[in-house]
Write a protein that binds this DNA or RNA. Structure first.
Lengths: 203, 203
DNA sequence: GCTCTAGCATAACGATCGTTATGTTGAAAC
DNA sequence: GTTTCAACATAACGATCGTTATGCTAGAGC
């Protein structure tokens, strides 16, 4: 059995296990032992591939960021209408959650509340925030709206709200009042209808 | 010196210390020792007043919930216009944060991402969610809108978004693009303008 | 065949976790 | 003044934290 390098590389098994456990149980609450057990990997292997738990957390956030950006790119390539491209952020997060199997809130939001100020994972939280604001701004500009920054901020607010409510719904099941993501998308569409291009039907 | 029962009671000192540390550094990341040191209290005293760390966390969330409800009541009593009363949730959270000295996101949102499913503090997260949805629904109904549930959900989305962005801004300083709370309030006002009562100026 | 080396599991490290047992102190009861 | 009792600090508990030292094992070079 031993030396199963033939299976998935140890580094990927570690990232998979860490991703699931950090997301499911929280970063601080997940011990290194739990990650090692799920990945079927020894401590020495972990510290050969990563600088430690902090490095593993940062690598997990990096992978999440890259996959999120990739999926958003993918969805964006399927849209041509400027308003649809603005709203693509909601479709992308729906697809990301489907691919990732997410049953809770946003991993970046959770990490933002958990990681201490100097943590190496913080750079990927900043990267995510920057991607959201800059891309939404560019898409708003391309849509020819009068106030691209205002539009981008508004969409970001609805995006943040949907993911935050998902996190809170996961904590208190039974109070669900529908899907926050679809509701946010609908609100964003209505809100944009009065601000960009010709009047759109706000049904 | 010793036996300083003459000063603030040990229970309150514990709640103050726990509130600050849990909010500042996270619940899981804050050790009981840190709370004890800040409160200048011995372990035996903590376990005489609370069932343990979990009980202390629950008591902190209970106190936060009661104060938040009290402040919202207070703000609500100052408003008579139905739309102002709907928007009072944003004014209340601004006042709550001023009173509490909050420099990060929402403590309930953070707790929702940190606490495990069966934690005794979960009931106060549920209470907060219920207060928000039910009260917003009632206020929307009182405002005579056509779809009170839809209005309440929309305002909740903007509320959630503002507090989530506050949390993420605290994690990555330097990317601030203004105050999410005031922006959310302005968006909500604009959004409500087209849906309730006579047309309001959307400045 | 033997040696060398990289990569791995076993075991254990000190530190800190949340919690509890053991004394000690100060004020009220009589 | 003595007793009594609740509240307190000191010290230590076992468990687990993140991390590292030690030994085994499989393949490359000769």
């Amino acid at each position: 059995m031993s030396r199963d390098t033939a299976s998935r590389p140890a580094r990927e098994r570690l990232l998979d296990a860490a991703g699931e456990l950090f997301y499911e149980s929280g970063i601080a609450a997940t011990g290194v032992d739990a990650v090692l057990a799920r990945a079927r990997v020894s401590p020495a292997t972990l510290y050969a591939h990563f600088s430690g738990k902090d490095g593993l957390v940062a690598a997990d956030l990096e992978r999440r960021f890259r996959q999120w950006q990739e999926i958003w790119d993918e969805v964006l390539d399927e849209r041509t209408d400027p308003v649809d491209r603005l709203l693509s952020v909601f479709d992308a997060v729906v697809r990301y959650r489907a691919v990732e199997g997410s049953r809770r809130g946003c991993a970046f939001l959770a990490a933002a509340t958990e990681l201490p100020p100097g943590h190496p994972g913080q750079q990927w939280l900043a990267a995510d925030s920057r991607l959201l604001t800059e891309r939404l701004h560019d898409l708003a500009e391309a849509a020819g709206v009068g106030d691209p920054t205002g539009i981008a901020d508004g969409l970001l607010a609805l995006y943040d709200g949907a993911l935050a409510r998902l996190a809170r719904q996961a904590a208190t099941p039974g109070l669900d009042t529908g899907d926050p993501l679809h509701r946010a998308r609908r609100m964003a569409a209505d809100w944009l209808a009065g601000r960009v291009g010709p009047a759109r039907p706000s049904g």
